[in-house]
Design a protein around this nucleic acid. Structure first.
Length: 633
RNA sequence: GACUUCGUAGUUCAACGGAUAGAAUAGAAGUUUCCUAAACUUUUGAUCCAGGUUCGAUUCCUGGCGAGGUCACCA
């Protein structure tokens, strides 16, 4: 309808305005609740063109549209806003067409270009935490939304399975894992620990031992004992000690930090880890076997977590397989002059003309840095999927600069698709106690958190009853659906770009603007339809629409445009807020309009069908958020 | 310090440059012989400060104050 009026105005721009008007000057918005009308046109731009008051301009446009648009029942101009009211028949037909369309809201499959969405991309040393949850739910939901908007979507992650940090946990496991009576070291199967948790434990253990050793070294240095320390390090240490004298506290702290770093490099543990990395790069069989074994433990652990989350991936990329790819590109770019080499052999790109800095792309020893492999991975992906048109990286906003540089480099290398790469930069998740810090043990573990919300849902659902006749299996599934639904909704309803506060208490709330509130509305409608299940098919016969019914239909009718808006803004939050709005609208309808006790059969089945379609959209919308909609709760 | 993001009820979140800034929660008051009260209905309460652009500014620009992030031959 909006489209129709817009076209009408554009086609008759000459006779109406006596001059050209731009597409952008036609601004529609939904009519305020307290004003009569279904759609509002902002008149101010036209008042200017017509050089009259907004009131007169509005009257003129309104009359013009009314003459040519039979769906229009009336119009009214208030304060420079032209409010159109559509006929009851228009709204009834709207309901009819929504009802006919089982996949209402979804665009034709594969009608839009293929997009790859990257999310999760964890470090194999650290179990998934709250920050990952936001990342993963966001990425998954966005993928679903893009699909619904007509795109073909490839969900992917790149697994950070290479580097010195991996060697740290491998080394710690070899050195510090206790040996049981059968002569085995700790494994997931003999400890019952999840693989990612076990490996994470040894990563922490490494850090602990490593810091202790560094401390010892400093203590040794302080007694003027430099046994086994190279003269270069001793000189540096002495220099720092001198620098400590007569400085303010802040400067002293900085120097102490430098000394700490110095001592860390002197630890045998770090040396051994570095040796291990060299062995790994040389494909030493024993090291490689350990690496494979431990990584597989982690993957099994992650898989379990992903399963609980209800997310999946279409294609995985491993850094260990892609880290070499970028290097060839750099060499090529060096030849074509995109990059330049410094005296020490390191390779850089100069982005000062773009307002950024110089950025290193290859170390002086020829090894790859972070961005090198990102360049390689991106190019690799486009060759894996020749019809791929763009990519979305779901990565935290602390990497804004990195992606700015990455996309710029890809563009300079001449890849046309670089401009279709988008960094879905999301804000950090804070706790009421402040930032999450692994050092201080304030990290919220993903598995623990999910268990917690499910437990809470279990407790409250049991309290309420309503579970008669449900099997144990059904109940457990229901608790999962409610708990996780609440958690997902809690994390998704906030604009991704913004940093958000995670309040553990609120995240398990079941009332208000929450996931279970939406699920509840769905369950209620299902129960309503079940009660009426008389065997006879419900038919939609024209009936007089009440105000609440019209408002509901209006709300339903905007679902498709919400999906495309959420897709083009990369924001599941828009969809979440829409669903909440719809459910509130339905709650009001449900409370004021009788349904099952309505005596008129046509009106009754009309209301049931309206309810059915609301449930349909709730279920569909929730599924795009990765949330399930139970039929009973 | 440079660059960058942000600042809205007590709290957590909304608001293509549009009408009287919406919700939730917390607080106060109500609704059940009737379709699931995880609901519904009332009600108290906010745009960091100072300028500017505009018919119109929470939104855009400038300055200030405050909070985060980035400035590694780490990833």
């Amino acid at each position: 309808m909006e489209q129709k009026i817009k076209e009408l105005l554009l086609q008759h721009t000459k006779e109406l305005f006596n001059s050209d008007i731009s597409d952008a000057s036609i601004q529609f918005q939904s009519t305020r609740k307290d004003v009569k009308g279904d759609l509002t046109l902002v008149v101010f731009p036209f008042a200017k063109v017509l050089q009259t008051s907004p009131q007169l301009a509005g009257e003129k446009i309104g009359a013009f549209v009314a003459d040519r648009c039979e769906e229009l029942e009336s119009f009214e101009v208030i304060n420079g806003f032209l409010n159109f009211t559509f006929s009851p028949a228009y709204w009834f037909n709207m309901l009819h067409s929504i009802n006919e369309n089982e996949t209402f809201g979804r665009a034709v499959e594969h009608s839009k270009p293929m997009i790859m969405v990257e999310y999760s991309s964890p470090n194999t040393n650290k179990p998934l935490h709250l920050g990952h949850l936001r990342n993963i739910f966001l990425g998954f939901s966005l993928s679903e939304i893009l699909k619904a908007a007509g795109h073909e979507v490839i969900k992917t992650q790149v697994i950070n399975d290479r580097g010195i940090h991996i060697c740290k946990s491998m080394l710690a496991w070899e050195k510090f894992s206790p040996i049981n009576s059968k002569g085995e070291r700790e494994t997931p199967s003999n400890t019952g620990l999840k693989g990612d948790k076990l490996v994470g434990k040894y990563y922490v253990e490494f850090d602990k031992q490593f810091n202790a050793e560094a401390k010892q070294i400093i203590a040794q240095w302080e007694t003027d004992d430099f046994d086994g320390t190279s003269t270069a390090v001793v000189d540096l240490y002495k220099k720092f000690q001198v620098a400590l004298l007569g400085k303010d506290e802040k400067a002293q702290q900085a120097i102490h930090d430098k000394i700490k770093d110095l001592s860390k490099n002197e630890t045998t543990l770090l040396r051994e880890a570095k040796d291990m990395l060299v062995k790994w790069e040389a494909r030493d069989p024993q090291t490689y076997l350990l690496w494979t074994t431990m990584n597989n433990w982690v993957y099994a652990g992650f898989d379990l977590t992903y399963q609980t989350m209800g997310v999946d991936f279409d294609k995985l990329y491993y850094e260990s397989e892609t880290y070499l790819l970028g290097k060839d590109i750099i060499v090529e770019g060096l030849r074509s002059g995109v990059f330049f080499k410094k005296e020490d052999g390191s390779v850089w790109i100069d982005l000062t003309a773009e307002g950024l800095d110089e950025k290193i792309v290859l170390r002086s020893d020829g090894t790859a840095v972070y961005i090198t492999q990102d360049i390689g991975t991106a190019i690799d992906r486009f060759s894996d999927y020749p019809s791929l048109s763009g990519m979305v990286y779901t990565v935290g906003n602390e990497q804004d600069y990195h992606f700015k540089v990455l996309f710029l480099i890809l563009e300079k290398l001449g890849y046309a698709w670089a401009k279709n790469c988008f960094h879905l930069s999301y804000g950090m998740v804070d706790l009421p106690s402040g930032k999450m810090k692994s050092r201080e043990g304030t990290v919220v573990d993903a598995d623990d958190l999910m268990q917690e919300v499910v437990d809470k849902a279990t407790e409250i659902t049991k309290e309420r009853g309503h579970l008669d006749g449900m099997s144990e299996q059904f109940r457990n599934r229901l608790y999962q659906q409610i708990g996780l639904g609440g958690l997902k909704y809690y994390l998704l309803k906030v604009d991704p770009k913004k940093r958000m506060l995670f309040n553990p208490e609120e995240s398990v709330d079941l009332s208000g603007n929450t996931g279970p509130f939406l699920q509840y509305a769905h369950a209620r409608i299902c129960s309503l339809l079940k009660k009426e299940d008389s065997g006879a098919e419900l038919v939609l016969v024209p009936f007089t629409l009440q105000h609440e019914e019209k408002e509901l239909i209006k709300c339903l009718s905007s679902y498709p445009s919400i999906i495309s808006e959420a897709a083009s803004n990369y924001s599941p939050a828009l969809l979440a807020n829409y669903l909440y709005e719809l459910v509130k609208q339905y709650g009001h309808f449900y409370q004021t309009i009788p349904i099952l006790i309505e005596p008129n059969r046509d009106v009754k089945s009309g209301r049931l069908l309206l309810s059915y379609n609301v449930a349909k959209v709730i279920k569909s919308g929730l599924s795009l958020l990765g949330i399930e909609a139970p039929e009973k709760m």
